[in-house]
Design a protein around this nucleic acid. Structure first.
Length: 275
DNA sequence: AGTTGGACCTGACTGC
DNA sequence: TGCAGTCAGGTCCAAC
């Protein structure tokens, strides 16, 4: 499921392959994937005929910065099964092909999204901070703004558990279930711990664990899980707790537990390593 | 305001 | 073998 490291891997892939390319035409095959727009035509009108000046990222979203008469940005939110690939025009269509960006020269960027939780949104301008998608977003976890002091200011008065807080995009952008579990493990803190009770050293460990886990995952191309929608990753071999309930902790041999979190979803953690 | 839970969606998996 | 039921989770929205 694409979180920050998977979005960053996709960003780097696209940056190398399509920077400078012109988008001739946009096709929307799953209308729901353009649901932020009145119609797919509105999306196409903002994108067609423009050049990909740069490929960026904000949280879990990939951003295509487009130059033309009216500069614009195509925001691609991958949802939980979204996947971007470069194809040659005429290659067989994927089963859940949601959208196609046809490039000058016979290639195309294909956006495939079986569960259709993701979407493509075109916005005017190049500044993510002006776009409704990112209005409430917190800092990038790999930026200088993400510090122990910042965490103190934003978590001090909250009663939610740590894993829920890490997945809140308004607190920090780009973290989902896999990395929230792994960050809590590496920081040595239980995912259920109420964030208002975190100590100063714990907040410092969280900042370091977040950076360490995300950087390593980016280096390894993200995480590939069972549903093969993300074929690039090697971080799955480095997981300590995510989807390892019932198995022995790789550090202390304690059995990894799965505990239901609000919403009925599970969090994975090691009773031996996490306090 | 912060928190919780349901809804959206499809493929993979489980159990009969 | 096949079919129904359950789970997975990013994000939004309604309700407490």
């Amino acid at each position: 499921m694409p979180e920050l490291p998977e979005a960053e891997t996709a960003r780097r892939h696209l940056e190398a392959a399509v920077t400078g390319a012109k988008i001739r035409r946009v096709e929307v095959h799953i209308p729901r994937s353009a649901r932020a727009h009145e119609s797919p035509k509105e999306l196409a009108a903002l994108v067609e005929g423009k050049k990909i000046a740069r490929v960026g990222r904000r949280g879990k979203a990939v951003l295509l910065f487009l130059d033309g008469k009216q500069p614009a940005t195509l925001v691609i939110r991958l949802g939980m099964s979204g996947h971007l690939r470069i194809a040659k025009k005429g290659e067989p269509r994927e089963k859940h092909l949601a959208g196609v960006l046809e490039l000058a020269g016979g290639r195309e960027i294909r956006y495939v999204d079986p569960r259709t939780f993701g979407q493509m949104v075109a916005r005017v301008g190049h500044d993510p901070d002006t776009m409704p998608e990112f209005e409430s977003y917190g800092p990038e976890p790999l930026s200088k703004e993400f510090t122990a002091d910042y965490l103190k200011s934003v978590l001090g008065h909250r009663s939610v558990g740590l894993q829920v807080a890490l997945m809140n995009q308004a607190i920090v952008a780009g973290i989902g279930k896999i990395y929230a579990d792994e960050i809590c493990f590496r920081a040595g803190i239980r995912p259920t711990r109420k964030v208002s009770t975190l100590t100063g050293p714990m907040r410092q460990r969280l900042v370091e664990a977040t950076r360490g886990v995300l950087r390593q995952a980016i280096r390894l191309g993200g995480t590939t899980t069972g549903d093969e929608s993300w074929p690039y990753g090697r971080f799955q071999d480095k997981l300590f707790v995510y989807q390892r309930a019932g198995e022995a902790c790789r550090v202390c041999k304690t059995t990894i537990r799965r505990t239901a979190m609000p919403g009925g979803r599970g969090m994975h953690w090691c009773p031996g390593c996490q306090r």
